[in-house]
Design a protein around this nucleic acid. Structure first.
Lengths: 235, 235
DNA sequence: TTTTTCAACTTGTATTTACAAGTTATATTG
DNA sequence: CAATATAACTTGTAAATACAAGTTGAAAAA
């Protein structure tokens, strides 16, 4: 007997058709009754599949009209997921490493609670300065637990996304996270790093990202120069 | 004939019971069959209501066990969805209306693009100042299209969530949105309103929220005093 | 006593049927 | 020709029913 439910099967089929471009943005999916006929399901089952597609943002429905394909949002932005790279679009983002990844003990004062396993493993520490159109915009300080990351301190992070490296070489995926935002006055050090005008504030972000590995969270502190750019988020 | 659908009615009842603490975190809701009996609906209708509660993060379900309340862990926060009320927890948030809802034309200079229908309908304008522990924290300016909102300028918004009123009385649901964040120097007016220390910056947010009604978006400009509080977001 | 079995719950999936309500193109009417 | 009515679609809501699958605690067996 087939293990996966029928509505799930239809969901996967339609999802694949949407992401591979069989149905494009604005296209109407076949009507519910057509889908019933083609895939030999009843309407509640078909609607269950379509509801899932709505929930995941692939389509929206309009009564009397049909199910309309929604283009996936590409500029996900720093506020929803992943790193700073996807917030701007990688094209214009350059990265300078101020502190190459080194192994350290966790700081005494740390804005987040960490687990026992994370604590006893020590952490990988790195600092980066990131440029948009050759002007400094982000300064970030990162702490990553030193759990099963062979050779990470030898890798080059120049102009590469930290998250891409973790995903490709260590199979670590970001699942979600939490963050706090404030507007603060910059220190002298920060003002120089980010080339800020006197009196201009910075956006301060503390974030914890959870991953597919248990007890493996990524902790970042980010200072953002919002003179010319704003942080963008979709949800 | 009752205009709102039954599953919606049950959703509102259970949602209210959860946020007012009738059911607390970890509590089991009555079983689907019990809800059927009490509210005289069939199980598909009850399940539709429960599905909506799952989608909005109020409960999660476990097969064989029941529907479990999820409230306090999911302080959704201003960055992900809904309004400022859910960012803090309604308990400590008081609202003072600086400008009662009035009908206006849309401003000439507006940070977002608006549709033709929105433009020709005019907008409802309101300003609010919101307090946490009796200290001013949020100042927000809101523009809502004046489309099919009978008597909205007569309603009281004191200490009530704008979104709750839109949802309960006008069946308007927030589906998602986009926003931009900056750290800025406050104007003199803002410094007085938010009782800011000299030299302290504010967090500036521009947001557009999309709803289940076409051509009906909510536009807000928010100034946030981040001296004592931070804006929190989960994703 | 401890372990196993099982009955009585829970939610999950699915069918069938019916009518309400919004959309659109065509045919009808003025 | 232009406005209107209508028929044929679409999705939305809802009932009644059935069985599958996970959970739990009590009864039965070791």
């Amino acid at each position: 007997m087939n293990n996966i439910p029928q509505y799930r099967r239809l969901y996967e089929i339609l999802r694949k058709h949407i992401v591979t471009g069989v149905y494009k943005e604005g296209d109407l999916l076949p009507s519910e009754n057509e889908l019933c006929a083609v895939y030999e399901m009843t309407r509640p089952t078909v609607r269950h599949a379509l509801d899932s597609l709505v929930k995941d943002g692939f389509i929206f429905k309009k009564q009397g009209k049909g199910s309309i394909v929604r283009k996936p949002s590409k500029t996900i932005g720093i506020l929803s997921i992943a790193g700073t790279a996807s917030a701007i679009g990688v094209r214009h983002l350059k990265t300078q490493i101020l502190q190459k990844p080194i192994v350290k003990i966790w700081p005494e004062i740390f804005p987040f609670e960490i687990s026992e396993l994370e604590k006893e493993s020590g952490c990988i520490y790195m600092e980066r300065l990131r440029f948009v159109d050759d002007e400094p915009v982000f300064y970030d300080v990162n702490h990553i637990p030193n759990i099963n990351l062979p050779r990470i301190t030898q890798r080059s992070f120049e102009n590469r996304s930290l998250f891409d490296i973790l995903r490709e070489h260590y199979q670590i995926e970001i699942l979600g996270g939490e963050q706090q935002l404030k507007a603060v006055k910059p220190t002298v050090h920060l003002r120089k790093l980010l080339n800020l005008k006197p009196g201009h504030p910075v956006l301060y972000i503390e974030r914890k990202l959870t991953t597919n590995k248990e007890n493996f969270n990524i902790y970042s502190t980010i200072y953002f120069n919002s003179e010319k750019h704003a942080i963008f988020g979709k949800f």
